[in-house]
């Protein structure tokens, strides 16, 4: 039997800088230089005002839980149920999909505050969030 490998990201050219920053433990987001809008996933124009001028800005790692689910069925050998996945509303505005790391799945609640942490998948650092 070969070892079980978790799914790892296959970055697109636009998202390579995001994943490189993750490997250094930094969550970065595109922020528009014109209108100040933060967005995700990364792309080459601001989706709000269509400005091509923008910068990578590090998120401060605070968020709230927009919605979540708890996997009870096993879909992948690397992910042993039960575990939680949520849509995380970052303080900066964008919402991203994330593992929700907790020792008590029954305490998860929509709207609860979350903080950035990191998950490891083979050689990859993957952003995750936990209640605090």
């Amino acid at each position: 039997m070969s070892a079980v490998h978790p799914p790892t990201p296959r970055p697109s050219p636009e998202t390579v800088p995001f994943w490189e920053a993750c490997q250094e433990g930094r969550l970065i987001l595109p922020k528009c230089d014109e209108c100040g809008f933060f967005w995700f996933p990364p792309s080459s124009f601001c989706p709000e005002c269509w400005s091509p001028t923008w910068s990578w800005v590090e998120a401060d790692g605070l968020a709230s839980l927009h919605a979540f689910v708890v996997f009870r069925r096993q879909y992948h050998p690397a992910f042993e149920p039960p575990y939680a996945v949520g849509v995380v509303h970052l303080k900066e505005g964008p919402r991203i999909l994330s593992r929700i790391i907790t020792t008590d799945l029954t305490k998860l609640q929509v709207g609860m505050p979350l903080k950035l942490t990191w998950d490891q998948a083979d050689d990859w650092k993957i952003p995750a969030f936990r209640p605090f």
């Binding site: 799914p7 879909y75 593992r99």
Partner: peptide, 23 residues
């Protein structure tokens, strides 16, 4: 999707719609 999906343990249409039900 090749990123922002399976690496956080997200699989399938059931989970996607279950997010809506939870909210």
């Amino acid at each position: 999707r090749s990123e922002f999906n399976a690496e956080v343990g997200m699989f399938g249409a059931v989970a996607m719609h279950a997010l809506g039900a939870s909210r």
